[in-house]
Design a protein around this nucleic acid. Structure first.
Length: 682
DNA sequence: GGTGTGTCATTTTTT
DNA sequence: ATGACACACC
């Protein structure tokens, strides 16, 4: 299909958004208004119609999944070499590539480590424990504080001078030490992936010129989710030329609590007076009734840009509101309804989604779904990366590319057993701290022999020789082969068997490790065409390992799980998805809006969350609530959510509100229906 | 592999 | 209060 043919398929607003390329462009894209089509078509338009080289274009998203999907769709439009060198990545991957290309200017050495939040926490724990034993809660608070400082582009010096109280003062001092230590470890954390490029581009005109030459056009997805640093990054890269398109929806801003600044939508108009604002209000997803409900609800929030969604999908069914006696009845109701509705509507399991505010709400529902043998997929859960064996393997990988990574060193120096215990490590750490060198480097120092018994020194040096040997083989030949060989050589598998409660568990864990290494290999062999880096042969292991830490690959296999199941999701996790039939559970005060949100006065964001939930539905929407619910072990009476009052009454069909019917009889009738259906199905 | 004990969190989570 | 999970032990 030609680009002209694609354009014709778009509505006038979408076309305008694609065609306007001479200056800053803000696309206010309502839910289901085809924003991804606009972004992908615009990329194709820039290349095919405007003759811009794909390697001058960068499209940025927030999640790997979104980036992957966008890449996929653009790939279908741009054939052959046309798309070569195009950047479609997350903000973090873009930042990583900038850092990788500017190592010298930033004062980092090749093979730097990327600390995930857990590594960061370990470092903080270390730093904070120096003064006194601190509890996990306090560490978490400081970690959160540091993260928001970085998101807000506040450097340690500023944090220190602006600290409003003792707690902030303390956090700022830890922040300063934390940054210093990261640098010493030749490591960066996730927030640095945005912060460091911004600081670099701000302070180094040459670097700025380099990157402005490199990137001529930027497209940003989910712009309402950008934080201060991310906005600054876009702003710095684009400069006066301001050739960019950002797409967002202030009504779907649900991440303010983690630093997102929806007001960046407004700031954009102030920073770029020439900004062209285009609204996409035609919705291609939902029925008129559902959209009317969404519009009415969200009109209770203040708006800078007003937006009213409409569609040509017909009015559809009324929105049902089901009041249940208690939470168990609610779960029962949702499960049994899915069962019957699937038959009635000839739907598949995958056509249903159940959305809720907090993960704990899924528990009861799971039981009911299991009871009816309804297949379901629960979002969230323990990730691949939090498994111990994966962390071990990752620590080995990181130590191989960055011997200064003390976190990695400490994790695996005695895994498998090398008889290097806490006493040895403590002395080693003291020695290293005094001299301000890494633990790995300290093992080699002769002076260490004075602090430690010969046997301990021997064990340590055997360990570093082992690692260096592997590193050597990696540099000389096939890096992946060297890594696999390392795993076998140290017999990590035997260690797993020793430590697992059952052989089958050890087996599975070892398989996970091999999977990780396979993924690493895949990632290395992948053409580096989709990155803005100046990838060379030598840094490909390094960058592949960083991508692994950023979870860039791997999830793929989880995503491939396209089996036919009912989806259980938090409303947050549902953003960007759509389902024919949606159930929204727990529409009660203190749950949605959440009690904490009411307390701190962020009900507007809760309303947007409900809005996101509602707009996931294509055909039918069912809202449920319970009159009573157990919370913290106590039975509580619940009030229906204020959001229910904010929906158009005429479009709602209430069930169980009056509750005149005998509860016993009603329940029996429900059970009969299920029993009847089951017998019908044999 | 199964059982018992302790710890943890009950607001959302990506990178 | 409750349950899920990790870890230790049988």
């Amino acid at each position: 299909m030609s680009i002209q043919q694609r354009l014709v398929r778009l509505n006038p607003r979408q076309q305008e958004a694609v065609r306007y390329i001479d200056g800053p462009c803000l696309v206010l894209a309502g839910a289901g208004s085809g924003k991804t089509s606009v972004i992908t078509t615009k990329i194709a338009y820039l290349v095919q119609e405007c003759g811009m080289s794909a390697r001058r274009i960068a499209a940025v998203t927030f999640t790997n999944k979104a980036a992957r999907e966008m890449k996929e769709r653009v790939g279908q439009m741009l054939k052959g070499k046309q798309g070569h060198g195009l950047t479609v990545s997350t903000f973090h991957t873009l930042g990583l590539n900038i850092i990788r290309g500017e190592l010298k200017a930033l004062g980092y050495k090749p093979g730097f480590s990327l600390f995930d939040p857990e590594d960061a926490k370990a470092l903080l724990r270390d730093l904070m424990n120096k003064d006194a034993q601190v509890d996990a809660d306090q560490i978490n608070r400081v970690q959160g504080q540091i993260s928001s400082w970085k998101n807000d582009l506040v450097l340690p010096g500023q944090a220190l001078s602006h600290a409003a109280n003792d707690d902030e003062q303390y956090a700022a001092r830890v922040y300063e030490a934390y940054v210093r230590h990261l640098k010493a470890y030749n490591a960066v954390d996730f927030d640095d992936l945005i912060l460091l490029p911004v600081v670099l581009l701000r302070d180094d005109p040459e670097a700025l010129a380099r990157w402005r030459r490199k990137i001529h056009y930027m497209l940003v997805d989910e712009y309402q989710d950008t934080n201060v640093s991310q906005y600054r990054l876009v702003q710095m890269l684009m400069g006066e030329r301001a050739t960019f398109t950002v797409v967002g929806d202030d009504d779907q801003s649900i991440y303010a609590w983690r630093g997102a600044r929806p007001e960046n939508l407004v700031t954009l108009g102030e920073d770029f007076p020439r900004l062209r604002v285009i609204k996409l209000e035609q919705n291609y997803r939902s029925t008129g009734t559902i959209l009317r409900a969404a519009n009415t609800l969200i009109s209770n929030n203040p708006h800078v840009y007003d937006k009213t969604l409409w569609s040509e999908m017909g009015q559809g069914e009324a929105i049902r509101v089901v009041v249940n006696r208690h939470e168990e009845a609610e779960a029962e109701r949702v499960a049994s309804e899915i069962l019957t509705r699937r038959i009635k509507e000839r739907a598949e399991w995958r056509d249903f989604a159940v959305l809720y505010r907090g993960n704990f709400q899924a528990r009861l529902l799971e039981l009911k779904l299991q009871h009816y043998q309804i297949p379901y997929k629960l979002s969230g859960g323990t990730s691949f990366f939090s498994r111990g064996e994966i962390k071990d393997a990752m620590a080995y990988l990181r130590l191989l590319i960055n011997p200064a990574d003390d976190n990695a060193f400490l994790r695996i120096v005695n895994i498998p057993r090398r008889e290097i215990g806490p006493t040895t490590l403590e002395k080693l750490a003291n020695y290293a701290t005094e001299r301000e060198i890494a633990l790995f480097a300290a093992c080699r120092e002769l002076g260490l022999a004075e602090q430690l018994p010969t046997r301990a020194v021997e064990r340590l040096s055997r360990f570093i020789h082992f690692i260096e040997g592997v590193r050597d083989r990696m540099d000389r030949g096939d890096a992946l082969a060297a890594i696999r060989e390392m795993m076998r050589e140290m017999d990590y598998e035997a260690w797993l068997y020793q430590n697992a409660s059952a052989p089958t568990i050890a087996e599975r864990r070892m398989a996970n490790v091999w999977t990780l290494i396979d993924q690493l290999e895949k990632s290395m062999n992948r053409e580096p065409e989709d990155t803005a880096s100046t990838d060379t042969e030598t840094d490909s292991v390094e960058s592949a390992i960083s991508r692994l830490v950023l979870r860039d690959i791997l999830e793929q296999q989880a995503e491939e799980d396209d089996s036919d199941r009912v989806q259980l999701l938090t409303m947050h996790a549902s953003k960007g998805l759509e389902f024919p039939h949606v159930y929204l559970m727990g529409l009660e005060e203190e749950l949605l809006p959440h009690r904490n949100a009411i307390e701190v006065g962020t009900v507007e964001e809760e309303r947007r969350l409900a809005y996101v939930g509602i707009t996931r539905a294509r055909r039918t929407l069912t809202l449920t609530l319970a009159r009573q619910r157990k919370a913290y072990g106590e039975l509580m009476d619940c009030t229906p959510s204020r959001f229910l009052d904010e929906l158009p009454d005429a479009d709602l069909e209430w069930e169980g509100r009056a509750d005149k019917e005998d509860p016993e009889k009603k329940q029996a009738r429900g059970k009969d229906a299920i029993a009847g259906l089951r017998s019908l199905l044999g």
